[in-house]
Nucleic acid binder design. Structure first.
Length: 809
RNA sequence: GCCCGAGUGGCGGAACUGGUAUACGCGCACGACUUAAAAUCGUGUCUCGCAAGGGAUGUGGGUUCGAUUCCCACCUCGGGCACCA
């Protein structure tokens, strides 16, 4: 063994050997229990690996390595979520085919990931842009289509004039395109939709059955937005400027597939979560959108009202979140409260939104602060003492409904770099699925990747590709030219990992039954994916479960998330700010093990932390000292034999080694539990404490090896190297995870605090066996205590076992 | 404006279910080794005080024998958002 710790040699050596021996390949036919740990597969951007990837991947790598040592057949796969706009935009700019760009980027990422020593099973690598993969993305889409959950509808969509694509509601940030920042416009467009709202109830309820971080559940629930309340119809009292219309025959459907509110009846329908406050209603507030709909259907209004409506609608589109001054204008109409037949004014206001609930509310100023504020401003009456209506009461006038915020998923993109939607439009037969034998529908080569000016996908220009025979009637037909959003592949990729080369099914029942039993055991990813990707993939999974194609109704048994790594100044790392950190340089100078250690040590895993390269020397020194002890071990192994230490036992040669052994077992316990709770930073600090102790005292070689084992998930290369150097023939990867001896963890002597009136005065050593009485007696007789207590009355003595005695005087 | 986090030394942070605040690491200072420097090792490092002792976990209250931890109000920073009825 070399005297110096040369990370470059060691890391390359073991990475090559591990790969050659296929130590991280999961065995589909194993008799062992499986453990499926999953990271969010990266989008291979041109910028290369980010230090943030390393943080989250190392966390799951640590968990995977520990599980392997605990005897599980671990599936820890990796792949590429490679469809998407950055690659496409790059292709548009440079003319280089996205396939080529993707290949370059994944090659870089693969090399970088391998240099960090992650224990991925590279034999199962998937790529969403691989036709062998997206064949099944298309296949699953067709199942949605066949079940009527994929439907095309003309709907007002978010339109990005720059990217020339439709955006899902979820992709619009502050009124602007999530990707390019251009303000989003509304535009009518035929779009394929996926009916995720049909699953809203289960997506909400089943959160009770999974082990997600509470904040993740909250975010999902808020997104689904289930609320129970009532829809109540208020009859409109005819007024001079209201021309009554026939009850609407409107059967149009909104994106949720629900009937669009007909506001043209003689009623205004309100949604309320508090139907019991109906006797407190003093006005009705409707959205500008609802008012506009009424006008469309014949309501005559003054120019004043009309301009208010237009102004409000414009403001609504500008999504700034600052508090808006509440405004409103009286419609001149009266609504009749069905509960007490009182006539209340209908106001058009800016604080009720057209796309929420029914687009109208009942104003109860006594019970709602917003209504109160509004009523005060416009001198509307406020009824304070009204009786609350019980369910029996209000249910006469309204019906109980459950509504969701969630909208159906806009599933088409008029872009090139996505999975073609495998449907054919026939004049006679309508939309016909591409037969399964013809899947995948390959992305054809096109001359240019930019969407056409009318917003159609570039595929629309490929006449030879577009024009086909109808699979049903063989008549002339055309292909759908829209592609899928990049969320499609990531909605099911974790299933493909179980059987990545299968040509007959997306994955075999057998492999799914084994690896997906109870779902993915642990899935970690970013908070930014908790509403989109996480929800979408739960939706797809539930759909596949209903088709009896997967064994569980939830894909992920456990979900956690990491905090972001920020630049030194606490801001986001980005190319444009020039504050990014290149992992390759760090691996070169400090080594992968140090980089892993540093990223795990820098702060609590679930919180964001600022990068500080200077602090990396701490973990680096730690590893060098670990190395140094091993050389001491090698040199001194003879002397341990002389001391009569039979190898493989816990018998210590002297007191100092025994004390170290006790600390070792405490550390084993702490590291074991900390890893499970993702408290990596404190796990590392406890190992640092152990090292400090080991340096000062005698160590039994078996104990040192145990230290190497618990360190292995964090720093795999150096620990494997030292493990072998100390004579082990088999890889540390499959050595048994050390168990702690509870007897050694327990202390028989502890130092406890003696407080007087809650203030620390002195400390005493006690035997943990001693009785409360004895300890109190000792506390009272301590010199410092007597000084304070003399002449004072002792009111109370509080004793906390192994902690403190508090004397109240 | 609303929701979710967070606020502890010079810095990153630790503190179990309310029980000795500042573990561990960085930095800094001093010492050893060295002709010297680096590296390494050792010692010290919240603050006031000679000491006894006092004061500090964003601010102000409260509950408690005891609060970084629980409650109320407020301030600041980060993230999210749909005035969600």
């Amino acid at each position: 063994m070399k005297k110096e710790y040369d990370h470059k040699k060691i890391e390359r050596k073991w990475q090559n050997l591990w790969e050659k021996k296929k130590v991280y390949q999961a065995d589909s036919k194993s008799k062992k229990p499986k453990y499926y740990s999953l990271i969010e597969f990266p989008y291979p951007s041109g910028a290369g690996l980010h230090v943030g990837h390393i943080r989250s991947n190392t966390a799951m790598d640590i968990i995977s390595r520990k599980k392997r040592m605990e005897g599980y057949n671990v599936l820890f796969p990796i792949g590429w979520d490679a469809f998407g706009l950055p690659t496409e935009n790059y292709a548009i700019k440079t003319g280089i085919h996205p396939i080529k760009v993707t290949k370059q980027n994944t090659d870089t990422f693969r090399k970088q990931l391998k240099s960090i020593g992650f224990s991925f099973d590279w034999s199962r690598e998937v790529n969403t842009t691989d036709p062998k993969f997206y064949k099944w993305t298309q296949w699953i889409f067709l199942q949605f289509f066949k079940k009527g959950l994929a439907y095309k509808t003309k709907t007002e969509i978010n339109w990005c004039p720059n990217d020339k694509i439709g955006l899902a509601n979820e992709e619009v940030v502050a009124g602007c395109c999530e990707r390019c920042g251009t303000p989003v416009e509304k535009r009518e467009k035929e779009q394929w939709m996926l009916a995720i709202t049909k699953y809203a109830d289960r997506l909400d309820k089943d959160l009770d059955t999974v082990d997600y971080l509470e904040k993740i559940k909250i975010q999902q629930r808020n997104w689904i937005g289930r609320s129970e309340g009532a829809e109540i119809e208020f009859k409109i009292s005819t007024a001079s400027n209201f021309s009554p219309l026939r009850p609407s025959q409107n059967t149009e459907r909104d994106p949720r597939g629900q009937k669009i509110q007909s506001s043209s009846d003689f009623f205004v329908k309100v949604f309320t979560t508090r139907p019991d406050t109906i006797f407190g209603v003093t006005f009705i507030a409707i959205s500008a959108q609802m008012a506009k709909n009424w006008i469309k259907e014949g309501w005559k209004v003054s120019s004043e009202i009309n301009s208010y409506i237009e102004k409000t609608l414009t403001e609504e589109k500008e999504d700034n979140f600052e508090e808006k001054e509440k405004t409103g204008i009286s419609s001149g109409l009266l609504a009749i409260n069905p509960a007490n037949n009182e006539k209340v004014p209908i106001w058009i206001v800016n604080y009720v939104l057209g796309n929420v609930g029914t687009g109208a509310i009942m104003g109860v100023p006594a019970d709602d602060t917003r209504d109160e504020e509004f009523a005060k401003k416009f001198n509307l009456s406020i009824v304070k003492d009204y009786k609350k209506a019980g369910y029996e009461n209000w249910s006469q006038w309204g019906k109980k409904i459950t509504q969701y915020k969630l909208r159906d998923w806009v599933f088409s993109r008029q872009r090139y770099w996505g999975e073609p939607i495998p449907l054919i439009n026939c004049g006679k037969c309508g939309w016909v699925p591409v037969p399964e034998k013809d899947l995948p529908v390959l992305l054809p080569k096109v001359a240019k990747y930019k969407p056409t000016d009318n917003g159609e996908s570039p595929l629309a220009d490929m006449k030879s590709w577009v024009n086909v025979k109808c699979p049903k009637c063989k008549g002339p037909a055309t292909r759908e030219t829209d592609t899928m959003p990049n969320w499609a592949g990531s909605s099911w990729y974790y299933l493909r990992y179980t059987d990545p080369k299968n040509n007959k099914e997306f994955a075999s029942k057998k492999n799914l039954g084994y690896f997906m039993k109870n779902g993915v055991d642990w899935y970690n990813g970013g908070m930014e994916h908790t509403t989109l990707h996480l929800l979408y993939s739960r939706f797809w999974h539930k759909f596949l479960y209903d088709l009896e194609l997967v064994p569980t109704s939830e894909p992920y048994a456990k979900r956690t998330s990491q905090g972001m790594i920020l630049a030194e100044q606490g801001e986001k790392m980005s190319k444009s700010k020039g504050n990014t950190v290149n992992p390759d340089d760090l691996v070169k100078t400090y080594g992968a093990d140090t980089l892993r250690m540093y990223e795990m040590f820098m702060g609590p895993f679930d919180q964001s932390v600022s990068w500080n390269t200077d602090s990396m020397v701490g973990p680096r020194r730690f590893l060098e000292r670990i190395w140094k002890i091993a050389t001491r071990m090698q040199k001194n192994s003879a002397s341990f034999t002389l001391l009569g230490v039979p190898s493989g036992t816990h018998t210590a040669p002297n007191f100092s080694a025994f004390a170290t052994q006790k600390l070792l077992h405490k550390t084993i316990k702490k590291v074991t539990l900390d890893i499970e709770a993702m408290r990596f930073n404190t796990a590392i600090s406890s190992m640092m404490v152990l090292l400090n102790e080991m340096e000062k005292s005698d160590v039994v070689i078996e104990d040192y090896k145990k230290f190497l084992q618990i360190l292995h998930p964090f720093a795999p290369h150096i620990t494997e190297e030292l493990w072998r150097a100390l004579g082990e023939k088999k890889s540390i990867n499959f050595s048994e995870w050390p168990k702690w001896d509870e007897n050694l963890v327990k202390d028989d002597k502890v130092k406890i605090a003696i407080q007087i009136n809650g203030k620390l005065r002195t400390e005493i050593m006690i035997n943990t066996e001693e009785t409360e009485e004895d300890i109190k007696k000792q506390a009272l007789s301590a010199e410092t205590v007597r000084k304070f207590t003399s002449g004072k009355e002792i009111k109370k003595i509080i004793y906390v076992k192994n902690r403190l005695v508090n004397i109240v005087i």
